Simulated assay, not measured.
Amino acid sequence: MEVDVLIRKGELSDASSLAALSIEVWLGTYIREGISGFFADHAFREFATERLRSRIADRQRTILVSQNVVGIDGMIELVASAVAPVADCSDVEIATLYVQPRHQGTGRGLALPNAGLDSARSSGHSRVWLAVNAKNTDAIAFYQRQSFQKAGETHYEIEDQRYLNYVMRRDL
């Protein structure tokens, strides 16, 4: 069921909602065999409200949110001046694209990246890149349907653990 999607710029007052959204989506996507202290500690550090507040305030970042009548149900975060881990990528990274699972399939997963791409384009950029977990086949297929192409590989690191990610890029 597709609905009208309100996309707006993230505000400092959204930090706790974005922290909760991030924890929900990250744990639901990547932690499938039970939540260990290792991953719980990482999620609480990475997605702490104060950390999200700092990211919202950072002028190198653009955070856009999708909102329904109750609250935030998705977000996209772009980072300008991001150094890509592989050649032939721009300096604009899509660092985060999260939509609550119960709101997937409602148009948010398309509206958020489209708004982010429009933002990057209007800032004079001609390409964006992102990293996606190599085991997240649904996300990889989604990005490929949105004209992203694999550009190389990198790793997401948590302490001494490394997880293979694909770097994908798209011309605007």
Rank of each mutant, 00 (worst) to 15 (best):
R53H: 08
E159K: 13
A84H: 07
A139C: 13
A115C: 05
R53P: 00
P113M: 06
Y166H: 15
S16R: 11
N136W: 02
V79Q: 15
E157V: 15
K150F: 07
E2N: 10
Q149R: 13
E2P: 00
T96N: 14
L112V: 00
R108M: 02
Y98W: 14
F47D: 02
Q100I: 09
A57G: 01
A115K: 03
W26G: 09
A57D: 07
G107E: 08
W26L: 11
L130M: 05
I76A: 10
K150I: 09
A134S: 15
E24G: 04
V3A: 07
Y156G: 02
A111E: 12
R145F: 00
L6I: 10
A19K: 02
A131G: 15
T154Q: 11
R102W: 07
A120T: 01
Q146W: 00
L12D: 09
Q104R: 15
D41G: 05
G10Y: 09
A151T: 01
F44S: 10
E153A: 08
E50L: 01
V128L: 13
E46L: 08
R8M: 06
H103L: 12
I158S: 04
R45L: 07
T29M: 12
R127C: 08
S22M: 07
E153Y: 02
G37P: 11
R102P: 03
I7V: 14
L97R: 12
P113G: 05
Y143I: 01
L110P: 00
E159R: 12
R170V: 05
E93A: 14
P113N: 05
G71S: 09
E2H: 11
F148A: 03
T49H: 01
A131Q: 09
G152Q: 04
L21P: 11
K150A: 07
G10K: 10
G34A: 10
I158H: 05
